[in-house]
Design a protein around this nucleic acid. Structure first.
Lengths: 336, 336
DNA sequence: CTGTTAGCGCGTTCAA
DNA sequence: TTGAACGCGCTAACAG
């Protein structure tokens, strides 16, 4: 069983390679009969055209890249589900790259993708990304590029996010309604778009309710142990908050861990709400109130827009800047 | 800024394309000086060889495929972390495919991968996979192939798993030691390798402790709602078990949900233990005892072995059949 | 509708 | 150590 190629099929069928090629790709300029003969033999032999030859010739790879900070995160894995769904429909392949929240690695990955390996790129930037030359260069080169969730304002490409500011505002108001007066904000990075927007919503709610006398942010990072220390310091120190707004899921988990350690009761001593797509949040002790992002839809929409770019379709105004609605699910961690 | 290629570099440097090609790939048959000149310009211009041309010529893609049932699963996303780690070292790219537990889709994906798109494949089979022609054909074609976690006995390729039988035995003994007498087993599919092995460990423990008079299996699937119904029927019916062994994480979550609904107290009325790689299991109400698989290590080892296959290195006996140890973490859900 | 020709960009001959 | 020539497998352009 040697290597198959178009020529061998062509010889067997007494056709030229180009006809076989056309038939396999459903060209209109080939007879139905020929198409059927070709497809029958191709199926019988299990033949598929060599994708590299095809990519080289057509100058497209039928592949997209998804770059995310980490995979062990429900939000991103749900996004990937949406991406895969659309890619499958388009018969595209999906390459995945992890930055591990490292801007340098992110830069390297973008470099790897500069020479035609993929037809388009979707990225959620790392929390250490401040310089944006690599992304701007990518955009400028004409590579279809889309941001999702974590964006860079400076780089003018479509951005598919959720309504972070508004959802955060509502979540903070919920804490206030339940009696919180000193609400601390746990952030992943001051420079990260989602954290900025989430902070803005939090701050707006404090302003509205004249609770700005206590306005404290703890900037965390990707390392659980140091996050726990910072949260520990916050909760064991003077001027302890009576509520916590966690900008990302892992910080809520860290908060719960510290509360266990300190035997600080949630929600009586501390209310907690967090962005989270963890379905098991309802099983926590106590059940965690969450702001749930429409992750699957973000993945689908971002991929959709990416394909519009790839296919050089015109983008509608609401393709360029999409903010899908999050859902707040109140549970016991925020009750009075 | 038009397309770069070897020729343009060559012209600029007054070299032939072949010398440039050689220099970039660190061939020994090119002078150090030339190498440096070439690399300097390549770096300056941000040049990278077209991967499709290169793949076509060399007949290798520098890409591997990972096929998993679902991504929204801590085990698989941790595995991917390990895969990415090794692939990065090898300067390989990673394509990801989801079967959504559908054997037909699995078959299609394997077909997509038959003609050189990837140099190797890692797969954890779907829970509906019974026929194995597609995998056997893949193996027979010479494609490097490795199973991880969920395997098919019949297909003779390396398999990297965890010590399911032994870990399940120990977990079941733990339930027994804590007083359980009627232990039910929640399975994802009777035909799935991991479930068979986990069941075997469970059954062996029951045998050893002469508790076989109650030996009940509930076969679940990928749909949460129907799983909850089945578990509900089990827990609300006659001959309720006093403990549950969940073969996979999601079934433990479903069990907790049903217990909440039925107001059935864990662990006093029902003890629960489960395979799970969810770090937040410690925050559950009550904290869930878990059997933690070495997912990251499985990902690394499987990728490692896959690269040995790709590089045609000899496999050591303990590359062909690896069973890494799981860890049991006892928490409140199994206490007396 | 089908065949012929040429070339995508690279890496490997083989010759110098 | 370098260059010239060829071909990987496919498909676009052109011709019939």
């Amino acid at each position: 069983m040697d290597k198959l190629d178009l020529k061998k099929l062509a010889k067997e069928l007494n056709l030229s390679p180009s006809s076989v090629s056309r038939a396999l790709r459903d060209s209109h300029e080939v007879s139905r009969e020929t198409k059927e003969r070709v497809k029958a033999l191709a199926a019988k032999w299990g033949f598929q055209p060599n994708p590299h030859a095809s990519s080289l010739r057509q100058n497209k790879s039928k592949t997209i890249a998804v770059i995310i900070p980490e995979i062990q995160n429900n939000f991103f894995s749900q996004v990937l589900n949406g991406v895969e769904e659309i890619a499958k429909e388009k018969k595209y392949h999906v390459l995945i790259y992890l930055t591990h929240e490292d801007a340098e690695r992110e830069n390297e990955i973008l470099n790897l993708l500069r020479n035609g390996r993929v037809d388009g790129i979707m990225i959620s930037v790392s929390n250490t990304t401040i310089e944006y030359d690599h992304l701007e260069a990518c955009r400028a080169s004409g590579m279809p590029l889309v941001f999702f969730d974590r964006i860079l304002e400076e780089v003018k490409v479509p951005r598919i996010t959720s309504d972070d500011e508004e959802a955060s505002f509502r979540a903070t108001e919920l804490l206030i309604k339940r009696g919180a007066k000193k609400i601390a904000f746990l952030s992943l990075s001051d420079s990260l778009s989602i954290c900025k927007r989430r902070y803005a919503g939090y701050a707006r709610a404090l302003n509205k309710h004249q609770l700005t006398s206590y306005q404290k942010t703890v900037e965390c990072d990707a390392v659980d142990s140091s996050n726990r220390e910072k949260i520990h310091a916050l909760l064991a120190g003077e001027e302890r908050p009576d509520a916590i707004f966690a900008a990302v899921e892992k910080l809520a988990v860290n908060t719960y861990e510290v509360c266990k350690e300190l035997e600080l009761k949630i929600p009586s001593k501390l209310k907690v709400i967090s962005f989270s797509n963890l379905s098991a949040a309802a099983l926590f002790d106590p059940p965690l109130s969450t702001i749930i992002q429409p992750s699957y839809e973000i993945g689908k929409k971002a991929t959709d827009v990416l394909f519009k770019l790839i296919e050089k379709k015109v983008l509608l105004p609401n393709d360029k800047r999409v903010a899908l609605s999050s859902t707040i699910v109140e549970r016991k961690s925020t009750s009075k």
